[in-house]
Structure formats: structure tokens, C-alpha cells
């Protein structure tokens, strides 16, 4: 039922897309320069996952994440973290923590989001706060991660070393189950 009506849309797409394609050809230059600066500084320690329009993805090991974040703040003028998300990869035995870093003070970076990701070791039977699922906190670099890291801690069990207030935020105080956003925490009935 869908094959017929997709055609007019396919005709429309180039017309709508003209401005954005024009941008696409020039803008990744800017993002490329950002990623180049990081690669230049850290070399093999970081890995550029993607460079898209307005988005630059950087992956770093947990040893260097602190230095990378400091470099991002001081040299690249990113100044706040919009979101800290954990992503659980049970096959790889790791939990990826993704920081979306933006900038208010530098107007040329207003559209940019730097996606800084790192990963922590995943344990099958997590004891939140007392197992190897640990990462260094970025709170002393970006103050705005405070509540976000608390949320990641309770939802994934990633303990942030150096975070001064590693308590639960959203979940009840007597939550005794698995951290709920891990993949092995199954919703009842599904």
C-alpha cells in the first residue's frame, strides 16, 4: 500500500533539500577542524566516531576522559554538558557513557554538539557503587553533569569516582533490583 505514494515524496525531496545539501558541503569543514584539534592533541588515545553536520563524535578510554574533557573545555571553549546518557552493550561487556557537550559562550559553536563517549566495564551481577563499573567523574570540569551523573549511576550502576554526592536521584530509596535501564532488566510481560 505504500509503494504508490512514495513517489511524489521522492520528487519533492531534492527541492526541499537544496539549502541543507548546500550547507552539508561546507559545514563539515568546521566540525572536521574540531575533531582534528582533538586528534592532534591526543593522537591515538581518542577515536573520532563520526563527523556529521553540527555533531562531532569522540570516543576515549576511561583513563583519558578527564584530560580530554579538560582540553575540550579549555581549548575548544565548550562550556556545559547537555546530557549524559548511558548505553548498555551486554555483548561487548561494556556500558557506554555519552556526554553531549555544547557551548553557550562561543557563538560559533552554538550549533555544535560534541558527543564525547567513554565506556566502563560491565558486570553481570552489578552491585552499584561497589564493583568495577567505574568511571572518573567530570563534575570538576563541567559542573552541570552533577545530576546527570547521579541519574546514570542509579540507572546503570556506573559509579563516578570523585563525584561528591553519589546518591540516588529518581529511584526510590529502597530500590533493591538491578539498575533499571540495563538491558537485562526486563519489563514485566515483555
Amino acid at each position: 500500500m505504500s509503494s504508490n505514494s512514495e513517489k511524489p515524496d521522492a520528487d519533492e525531496t531534492p527541492k526541499v533539500n537544496v539549502p541543507s545539501t548546500a550547507k552539508k558541503s561546507e559545514l563539515p569543514m568546521f566540525e572536521k577542524s574540531i575533531s582534528d584539534k582533538i586528534v592532534e592533541k591526543f593522537g591515538d588515545k581518542v577515536e573520532v566516531t563520526f563527523v556529521k553536520e553540527d555533531r562531532v563524535g569522540i570516543k576515549s578510554g576511561k583513563e583519558n576522559i578527564h584530560d580530554v574533557a579538560e582540553f575540550i573545555r579549555d581549548a575548544l571553549h565548550y562550556d556545559h554538558v547537555e546530557s549524559v546518557s548511558g548505553v548498555d552493550y551486554p555483548q561487548n561487556k561494556e556500558i557506554e557513557v555519552v556526554y553531549h557537550i555544547g557551548s553557550y559562550s562561543d557563538s560559533s559553536l552554538a550549533r555544535q554538539i560534541l558527543v564525547l563517549s567513554t565506556s566502563a566495564q560491565r558486570e553481570e551481577n552489578p552491585i552499584p557503587g561497589n564493583d568495577a563499573t567505574r568511571l572518573p567523574t567530570l563534575r570538576d570540569i563541567f559542573y552541570s553533569v552533577e545530576f546527570h551523573e547521579r541519574e546514570v549511576f542509579e540507572m546503570f550502576g556506573v559509579y563516578f569516582e570523585g563525584h561528591p554526592d553519589n546518591r540516588r536521584l529518581l529511584l526510590p530509596e529502597d530500590w533493591a533490583d538491578l539498575p533499571p535501564l540495563r538491558k537485562d532488566f526486563a519489563i514485566k510481560g515483555r
Binding site: 562550556d79 554538558v81 547537555e82 553557550y104 559562550s105 552554538a110 559542573y143 552541570s144
Partner: peptide, 22 residues
């Protein structure tokens, strides 16, 4: 800026940042 606030809180503090514009 440091606390990473957004929206009206940010704009009331003198930061000109609106995603509709930026």
C-alpha cells in the same frame, strides 16, 4: 552557563541562546 541551565533561565541571565535562532 556553568550550571548548564537552559531556556528562560539561561536567557534571563543574559545569554542570548535560543535554538530556534541558533
Amino acid at each position: 552557563i556553568r550550571l548548564g541551565t537552559t531556556g528562560s533561565v539561561l536567557r534571563a541571565s543574559g545569554v542570548d541562546y535560543d535554538l530556534r535562532k541558533k
